[in-house]
Design a protein around this nucleic acid. Sequence first.
DNA 1: GCTTCATTTCGACATATATCGAAATAACTC
DNA 2: GAGTTATTTCGATATATGTCGAAATGAAGC
Lengths: 114, 114
Amino acid sequence: MENKPLNIADLTIAAAQFAALGSEQRLAVLRCLVRAGPAGLSIGMLGERTGITGSTLTHHMKILTSAGLVAQQRQGRSIICAAVAFDDVQRLSAFLLNECCADAQPEKDGGPHG
Amino acid sequence: MENKPLNIADLTIAAAQFAALGSEQRLAVLRCLVRAGPAGLSIGMLGERTGITGSTLTHHMKILTSAGLVAQQRQGRSIICAAVAFDDVQRLSAFLLNECCADAQPEKDGGPHG
DNA sequence: GCTTCATTTCGACATATATCGAAATAACTC
DNA sequence: GAGTTATTTCGATATATGTCGAAATGAAGC
């Protein structure tokens, strides 16, 4: 596996994405969206399904969208949210495996640098 | 497909683990530990490499260990920390892929998404 | 333009997290 | 047991997050 340098920007983005996932409610929201598929769900529906109040939901959605995990799109009076860009998620998943499981595969890392 | 119910406990654990990863500093710590391999690093060394103060580091380590991402073990006067149980991390990674990419695998609906 | 519906912003508050330095604990050496 | 080293706990403080309800905004319909 390539030993990519992983700069500060990467760390910042990864941290933000993990942080966005670090909430039961947001995880529940994301789960609803994933199950809803590409059609997505409106904020209102999301609120009904998760029991989260409107303003609180808006707050969480901001975090999820700014982390790039969810996309929003106006459709009439509603805002439709959908789980997004699996590229990002897969990258995040790969990050986990690379960063946390590097040891699972024999690595020829010489020493501390970076 | 395996449409497992994903109970509250799972969500709670996953959220805690993601939250533990949701910090640049903790990510940096984890990275050090991964690179250090099974031998791990002491708290002191970790502090030197990351520039994080002792007490702050202790704080972060508590979060990482309680999330099950890092294990600590006394060795003489030092506490040796090591990235842990790749099972957990792989499970977390799988969680990401399952929960966030359920739509990515063309099952039978074949719906396009942007 | 007023009304209705859907969402966001605002103001407020409670709780959680991050951070530090100093003091306390634990382990080893003598 | 005193001294040294490594880590944790404690107390303090700053910032961030989660939460709510009410008011404001945006969109559609009359």
